[in-house]
Every structure is written in C-alpha cells, then in structure tokens.
C-alpha cells in the first residue's frame, strides 16, 4: 500500500459524512439521502458514487469483489478493483462467496448473498420520476407525500405502445410499502433478488444521493393488476455452463451472425463449469485453459 493515500483514498471526515448518510438511508429504506459527493479520480458515470460508498464501508480485513454487468474482468471492474488494491490494500476476489463487500454495476450476482455481505450499487440516476417530472423540487414533494400515480403513467405508456410493460431495466420498485426507488439499471430479471439477506447500498456520485435497502426488506416491483410484473429472461441455456436460471448475455461470434448465450455473471459460470456442467458450445474447463 502506497503511504501517500489515506486508507481507501477518502479522508476520514469524508468517510464519516458518507457513513452518516448511509445510516440515514438504512433507517429510511428507499429514501434518497443527499450527501456531499467528492471529486474522485475517475469520470462521473464510471461509478464515483459506488466507489465512495465502498470506501466508506471498507475495513482492512474486508475482501472486495467488483463486477461490471456481472463480469469481473471488464474495464470498469478491473480499474476499481485496482484502485482499492492500491489505496486500501484490501484482499480482492472474484468469488462471490468469498467477498464481504461487492461493488456492482448493473447486476446482482446469481448466487444468494449472506448477512455478512454488503452489495454496493453504482447509480447513474437515482430519481425514478426524473423522466416524467424534471423538477427536483416537485419530485421530492411527490416522494414526501407518497404521490406515485405518475410512476404508473410510465408503465401505462409502455403497455399502450408495446402491448406489455417494456421497461426491462431500472424497473421501479416500492420499498417496504413506502418509497418508490430506482434499483439502478439492473435488469428486471434481478428485481426479485432484491429481497435478500445482504445489505444493499446505492451511491450516485454525480447526483449526490445515497440510498439503501436493509436486509430482508420488502421490495415490490410496480405493475398493473391485469399486467403483473414478469422477471423475464432468455429461454436458452448458457452455452458454456448450461445454466437455465441465469441472466444471459448474447454474444455475436462471427460475421455470419452466429450467436452464443453466456452467463453475464462470470463467477457463477466459472463455478458451474468447475462443478462439471458443460453447455452446448462449451468444453471442460481444463481443456479451455490449455
């Protein structure tokens, strides 16, 4: 660890300020707590909110995992992981079950999380009503007075235009029967997983908002009685590990348009392949490495 940095980059006062916002967020599930977001050594939109929340949560004995769209090996994930290796010298891992803090961009790991884990989301736009009502003064009032009719107008428009609720990510949820919350742009496939044992923290750096969903909190996806919420998902199985229950990425293989469906959660896929599951287009893990 380079000694020029305070532990986990941020100074202690800033971490205290963020922790206070986190505590308030946990006390009022789904409520957007304003916080004094700091300038981070990465551009807005690259997870500055998530990084600040992670920095405020990390302890020297934590094991950190960072995923971007489910994968451990994408640019965003690798950069943030290296950032904390350098500034906090914490242990890092790609294994979901080994990690104590998991920072994620746009996915929830396939494996169930435990009470000992914290899931930190990177949030681009925390306000679910933003695109329906651009005035922040008005949306804050709508949250305060629980006026959420407008959220259903969006879903109504979906059905009127597409015949079904076409919102497939950042699908709005109601937390503990009170606040309507943007779950960050996770696929709606992940929405049902949000009622989990782990603590979920959300950080939006540019928008300067923090919010939280405590363990075992009720999280309901909004819908209509005659158009109930469906989590969706591909009918295919993972080409590498044959998983039927996982969220899949579609990958174009060549100019002829050959396609392959693979788990977006790379750790889950690896785990299944190690356990001997082989998909249609896969080979045993040992041969793949060679």
């Amino acid at each position: 660890m380079s000694t020029e940095y305070n532990f986990a980059y941020l100074d202690e006062q800033t971490k205290r300020m963020i922790r206070r916002a986190l505590l308030k967020g946990v006390a009022i599930p789904g409520y957007q707590v304003p916080f004094a977001s700091r300038e981070m050594p990465m551009p807005y939109g690259w997870g500055t909110g998530g990084v600040q929340v992670t920095a405020a949560c990390l302890k020297p004995d934590d094991t950190l995992k960072v995923i971007d769209q489910g994968a451990d090996d994408t640019t965003n994930a690798v950069s943030i992981r290296k950032f904390f290796e350098k500034t906090a010298a914490v242990a890092v891992s790609e294994k979901t079950e080994e990690s104590t803090v998991i920072q994620t961009r746009h996915r929830i790991p396939e494996q169930d999380l435990t009470e000992d884990q914290i899931l930190v989301y990177q949030v681009p736009i925390p306000e679910p009503l933003r695109f329906l009502e651009p005035r922040e003064t008005e949306t804050r009032k709508m949250h305060a007075l629980e006026e959420y009719g407008l959220m259903h107008v969006k879903l109504y428009e979906d059905i009127a235009r597409h015949g079904r609720i076409a919102t497939s990510y950042a699908y709005p949820v109601k937390v503990e029967g009170r606040y309507v919350m943007d779950p960050s742009p996770i696929p709606k496939f992940d929405n049902p997983k949000m009622e989990m044992a782990a603590l979920q923290l959300f950080g939006a750096g540019r928008e300067q908002r923090i919010y939280a969903v405590p363990p075992y909190t009720k999280v309901v996806s909004l819908d209509f009685e005659d158009h109930p919420f469906e989590k969706g998902g591909a009918p295919q199985a993972c080409g590498l590990c044959d998983a039927h229950d996982a969220y899949l990425d579609e990958v174009i293989m060549d100019d002829a348009g050959t396609r392959m469906f693979v788990c977006s959660d790379t750790d889950y896929c690896r785990m299944r392949r190690e356990a001997g599951h082989i998909g249609e287009m896969g080979v045993p893990l040992a041969e793949d490495a060679a």
């Binding site: 006026e147 259903h152 005659d226």
Partner: peptide, 11 residues
C-alpha cells in the same frame, strides 16, 4: 394519470 394518482391499478 388522475385515475392512477388515486389508486387505479387495472390497465
């Protein structure tokens, strides 16, 4: 919108 604002939830 006004219907949904007063709680209508049947499309």
């Amino acid at each position: 919108e006004r219907l949904m604002a007063v709680g209508a939830r049947h499309y």
